[in-house]
């Protein structure tokens, strides 16, 4: 080391270097595992929606199919989304359904214990998010264990 780095300069350098190493080691303990975990999933238009639905509904590539199905519904009637606010899984599915239901008008029904009071005929479809099966007023398409869609009787 050059002589002009001696004394206070060397002490400052040691302190800064020590801090930098501690900083990097402490940060790497969080960043490292994140880099190692998981892998890149195949690209798709609804990539994030697909992965979220796969996480909760355990069905791969569901978002595109659900979106296409909802888009095929007549636009003169809204889509009802029934969910339980206190149930994170239900609320999660409800918000994703609201995303995928665009450009339809939606009505979100937040239920806790009793069934919502609405007429199924007023809606193009009713999406049940993690709700028990007995709530269904009409025939349903079961997309997954916790996601069901009841189409209007007119369809």
């Amino acid at each position: 080391m050059d002589q002009h780095l001696a004394k206070p300069g060397a002490l400052s350098l040691s302190l800064a270097l020590g801090f930098a190493i501690a900083f990097a080691v402490s940060g790497a303990r969080q960043v490292g595992p994140a880099l190692r975990a998981g892998a890149i999933h195949p690209p798709s238009e609804l990539h994030s929606c697909d992965l979220y639905l796969e996480l909760v509904a355990h069905r791969p590539q569901l978002a595109a199919r659900l979106s296409a199905a909802l888009r095929a519904l007549p636009s003169d009637k809204p889509i009802a989304i029934v969910l339980r606010d206190q149930d994170p899984e239900s609320a999660f599915l409800g918000m994703l359904s609201a995303y995928l239901a665009w450009p339809h008008t939606i009505h979100i029904f937040r239920v806790e214990e009793v069934s919502p009071a609405f007429s199924p005929r007023d809606y193009a479809a009713i999406i049940y998010c993690n709700l028990p099966q007995e709530n269904a007023p009409s025939p349903e398409i079961v997309l997954s264990q916790n996601l069901r869609v009841a189409l209007s009787s007119a369809r």
């Binding site: 994140a34 880099l35 998981g38 892998a39 890149i40 999933h41 990539h47 994030s48 929606c49 992965l51 979220y52 918000m95 995303y99 665009w102």
Partner: peptide, 21 residues
């Protein structure tokens, strides 16, 4: 790599990307 590996965050999807969509 991290970015492509992860989903958009919940707010990133519903508050921001949704509007772009």
């Amino acid at each position: 790599y991290l970015s492509f590996k992860h989903t958009l965050g919940w707010d990133g999807l519903l508050n921001w990307e949704f509007k772009a969509h």
